Simulated scan of single mutants.
Amino acid sequence: MIDLLFEGGILFMSILTITLSVSLGLSIFHLIKKTQEESQLALIKSIGLFALVFGILGQFIGLYGALQHISQVESVSSAMLAGGIRVSSITSIYGMIIFVVSYLMWFILKLISSNN
């Protein structure tokens, strides 16, 4: 797992990890305090959406760099191309996972707060 953090690019993966920590921290804070604030719940969902968009941005920047190097080399094997696409997809997958976790936490907290 740590290898994927470094392989996906330390800048993007660390920012995504921070967004995951903030989303989980806000969720735990909301569970402990049992507040009824809709803005705090919306923030959890917004942080997840930010992680999704930021992960996709990381993939596009990675693909741009890979295509730039391919254009300079002029010939590349299909295995090298597939490896580059795989590496660039790591940030998108991580961003999607964070989005799903944040959205699930938002949904669960919304159900809990509506039952109270």
Results as ranks from 00 to 15, higher is better:
residue 6 F to S: 02
residue 7 E to I: 15
residue 9 G to R: 00
residue 9 G to W: 04
residue 10 I to L: 07
residue 12 F to Y: 12
residue 13 M to C: 02
residue 15 I to Y: 04
residue 17 T to R: 01
residue 22 V to K: 10
residue 22 V to C: 06
residue 26 L to T: 00
residue 26 L to R: 08
residue 28 I to V: 11
residue 29 F to V: 00
residue 35 T to A: 11
residue 35 T to I: 05
residue 37 E to K: 14
residue 38 E to W: 05
residue 39 S to K: 13
residue 40 Q to S: 11
residue 41 L to R: 13
residue 45 K to F: 09
residue 46 S to D: 12
residue 47 I to V: 12
residue 47 I to E: 02
residue 48 G to D: 02
residue 53 V to M: 06
residue 54 F to H: 11
residue 55 G to W: 01
residue 55 G to I: 09
residue 55 G to L: 06
residue 56 I to Q: 07
residue 56 I to N: 01
residue 57 L to N: 02
residue 62 G to L: 03
residue 64 Y to H: 09
residue 66 A to M: 09
residue 66 A to P: 00
residue 71 S to K: 02
residue 75 S to P: 10
residue 76 V to W: 09
residue 77 S to F: 15
residue 79 A to N: 11
residue 81 L to H: 12
residue 84 G to N: 07
residue 84 G to Q: 08
residue 84 G to K: 03
residue 84 G to L: 13
residue 85 I to M: 03
residue 86 R to L: 14
residue 87 V to A: 04
residue 88 S to W: 06
residue 89 S to V: 04
residue 92 S to W: 09
residue 92 S to V: 03
residue 94 Y to V: 13
residue 96 M to G: 12
residue 97 I to M: 13
residue 97 I to K: 15
residue 97 I to V: 15
residue 98 I to Q: 10
residue 101 V to Q: 06
residue 104 L to A: 05
residue 105 M to V: 09
residue 105 M to I: 13
residue 105 M to R: 04
residue 111 L to D: 01
residue 111 L to S: 04
residue 114 S to Y: 02
residue 114 S to T: 10
residue 116 N to A: 04
